[in-house]
Every structure is written in structure tokens, then in C-alpha cells.
Amino acid sequence: LRQRHVACLARSERGLGFSIAGGKGSTPYRAGDAGIFVSRIAEGGAAHRAGTLQVGDRVLSINGVDVTEARHDHAVSLLTAASPTIALLLEREAGGP
């Protein structure tokens, strides 16, 4: 079961505080899956403080732009754009009992 949710992050002077992996033109985060995933969350960064991202979340869109088939460098450029806030649509595998 997959759950979707939106995370809104305000960029700090240190950026957004998370890294992505995967996407076309880069090493897959999961074998056989060209999706883009949250690969790291920086301690004390914007994403960590927001508490809405988890490592392993699939990134579906960035500020309304679909990145499900995107190249890695395109997703990075969307994240590093000048916008002071970033809205992410994420998909998470629902774990637990």
C-alpha cells in the first residue's frame, strides 16, 4: 500500500536539507526503478525540522512539475530554483503492521 502526501518546505540559508537519488541519467536508487527518491535528510535542516520527509520517499512532483519520468539533473534544477518555498508530492510505502 502506498500513501501520498504533500510536503511544503521553506528554504533556509543552508538550503532544503535533503538529497535526492535516482532519475533518468543517474544511478537508480532502487534497482530497475528510474524514480527519484529522498536519499538523505540533513540533521537540523529544513526537511528535518518539517518532519514530513522520510528517506525512501518517492518524489512525484516538485512545485507542480511531474518528475516521475524526469532526469536527475532536471529534478535537481527544480529543487535549486530561486523559489523560497518548495512543494513536494511524495509517495511512501506504508509500512508497519
Score class of each variant (00 low, 15 high):
4 R>Q: 10
4 R>H: 07
5 H>G: 06
7 A>N: 02
8 C>H: 15
8 C>Y: 15
9 L>M: 07
9 L>R: 00
10 A>R: 12
12 S>C: 15
14 R>K: 13
14 R>G: 13
15 G>W: 05
15 G>N: 07
15 G>T: 06
17 G>A: 04
17 G>H: 02
17 G>T: 04
18 F>N: 00
18 F>C: 04
21 A>P: 00
22 G>K: 00
22 G>P: 02
22 G>H: 01
23 G>D: 02
23 G>K: 01
23 G>S: 01
23 G>H: 01
24 K>L: 06
25 G>E: 10
25 G>R: 04
27 T>P: 10
29 Y>D: 07
31 A>G: 15
31 A>T: 14
32 G>Y: 07
32 G>Q: 12
32 G>V: 04
33 D>S: 11
34 A>M: 15
34 A>V: 11
35 G>T: 01
35 G>N: 05
35 G>Y: 06
36 I>N: 00
36 I>E: 05
37 F>K: 04
39 S>Q: 07
40 R>M: 13
41 I>W: 04
41 I>A: 00
42 A>R: 11
43 E>N: 09
43 E>T: 12
44 G>E: 10
44 G>D: 13
45 G>P: 05
45 G>A: 07
46 A>R: 06
46 A>M: 10
47 A>Q: 06
47 A>H: 05
47 A>D: 06
47 A>M: 05
48 H>S: 11
48 H>D: 13
50 A>R: 06
52 T>H: 07
53 L>I: 15
53 L>E: 00
54 Q>I: 06
55 V>R: 05
55 V>N: 03
56 G>I: 00
56 G>C: 04
56 G>V: 00
57 D>H: 03
57 D>I: 05
58 R>N: 01
59 V>C: 02
60 L>C: 08
60 L>D: 02
60 L>E: 06
62 I>P: 01
62 I>F: 02
63 N>G: 07
63 N>M: 04
64 G>F: 03
65 V>W: 06
65 V>Q: 13
65 V>G: 04
65 V>H: 14
66 D>H: 02
66 D>G: 05
68 T>D: 03
69 E>G: 09
70 A>C: 12
70 A>D: 05
70 A>M: 07
71 R>K: 12
71 R>F: 11
72 H>R: 10
74 H>V: 14
74 H>P: 00
76 V>P: 01
76 V>Q: 12
77 S>F: 10
77 S>Q: 13
77 S>I: 06
77 S>N: 13
78 L>V: 06
80 T>I: 08
80 T>V: 11
80 T>P: 00
80 T>S: 15
82 A>K: 13
83 S>Y: 10
83 S>Q: 13
84 P>N: 13
84 P>D: 12
84 P>T: 10
84 P>K: 14
84 P>Q: 13
84 P>M: 06
86 I>G: 02
87 A>T: 15
88 L>G: 02
88 L>C: 04
88 L>E: 00
89 L>W: 09
89 L>F: 09
90 L>F: 05
91 E>H: 04
91 E>W: 01
92 R>P: 03
92 R>L: 00
92 R>H: 03
92 R>A: 03
93 E>T: 10
93 E>W: 07
94 A>H: 13
94 A>V: 14
94 A>T: 14
95 G>P: 13
96 G>T: 12
96 G>D: 13
97 P>T: 14
97 P>R: 10
